[in-house]
Amino acid sequence: MSNSTRETFSGRKAFIMAAIGSAVGLGNIWRFPYTTYENGGGAFIIPYIVALLTAGIPLLFLDYAIGHRHRGGAPLSYRRFNKHFETFGWWQVMVNVIIGLYYAVVLGWAATYTYFSFTAAWGNDPVQFFINEYLRVGDIKQGVSFEFVGMVIGPLIAVWLVALGVLALGVQKGISKSSNILMPVLVVMFIVLVVSSLFLPGAAKGLNALFTPDWDKLSDPSVWIAAYGQIFFSLSICFGIMITYASYLKKDSDLTGSGLVVGFANSSFELLAGIGVFAALGFMATAQGQEVSEVAKGGIGLAFFAFPTLINEAPFGEIIGVLFFGSLTFAALTSFISVIEVIISAVQDKLRIRRSKVTFLVGLPMMAVSVILFGSTTGLPMLDVMDKFVNYFGIVAVAFVSLMVIVADEKLGVLGQHINETSSFKVGFVWRLCIVVTTGILAFMLFSEGAKVFTEGYEGYPNWFINTFGWGMSIMLVVVAFLLSRLKWKNEVITERKGEQS
């Protein structure tokens, strides 16, 4: 496969839909609402918008420029940029490998709970049901369990097969077509969910809790870090996804115009999620005679504890359940597809073999590992630790290091020039300044949170568990990335831009 035959999206709309599909995921629905609530409510909107404009959108432009200029997956793009940078590309790929392994599990849970919603299968105690009956969570202190849970494994294998089927079809017929179908369905379902939530008794109480500003919080640096963190994790930036997708754009594509649409669309969706989720939590608090602070949750607690409880009590709860868990499933599926595509694209570039072959060469072993690690009774603590160490430390570390070398190697000017060659919205000094400042913020996020977890531990898990599946896993990703960058490229296809390769 030569570069001239690299697959492309059929046009800008196809790329934008796929990129929004990747960006809009679990984080938009279950992370943004609670992060906003915890960090000053309405006042949080100010640091959030500042973070979107100064970090999110500038980093999106940067990723697009790297992928589009070098027309390869993350490792090939970095290698073409500077042959010493290839390790960063593989590090990003390795982060996606780990995220893909556990993201599939949550996707499987969401799909299963969509089905459960029809009958409210969780009964009167959704927390007990989720922990003891559905996941049958075991004690990690007794060691990693290989007692597998059928109810988890079945949907887990199913979501892997669906995603691999889509990916095997290719960029346009698979990724683009699936996004073109799933994203409109997701948006319609979610709008219906939000409107339904707004009509629930007590919805205003939830919205008051979410949007009433606590201005004092603006002087707290941790609130600003939370805003940058939310934007950073929500937009799928700096870990290979946007580099890979941009490499499938046609050569004369408008990078910044598309980037602005993707950045604002992602935030629009999560703002809508905040309104829908807190309107629903307001209803739940009212129904139980509690304060919103007593029922507000984020992440797994919101989706699998709070929402089932709410569905039990809401009028037409089954419909709300199907809409909520269906939205979660579709949002997670398009993101999951993009995560696996980073790996497929990288391996395809390196080995120069057919996409369908690479898809199953990569996907089937990953599916097996995913089932072994997360399909057992210790899958939940495993997921929790890997999410913290790979999705937080892994992404922030690879972003910080790769941005630092790009800045230090004075490559921002080259990328800015590439963006301006084809884009409607031109970038210059302010864009470069935003990248430099964001690099510093990432360093602060990495070292402050790293020091905290290093000294205090994480969630009371045993040291051997944290050291093996947390720190050990994070370090192993870098080592494997370095080793992969030492492997020879098949048919030496690395030189694309004259004067860029030594």
């Binding site: 046009g11 309405g42 909107i45 918008i49 008051n208 949007f211 602005l260 604002f264 629009s268 703002l271």
Partner: peptide
Amino acid sequence: MNTSAIVMMVIALAIIWGGLIISIVKLPKE
């Protein structure tokens, strides 16, 4: 809903959804 919550919700919607609409409208023809 209290006034400050309504104001902040409207501001957030106006800036973020407004940004999305403007960025779509400003996209040059392919």
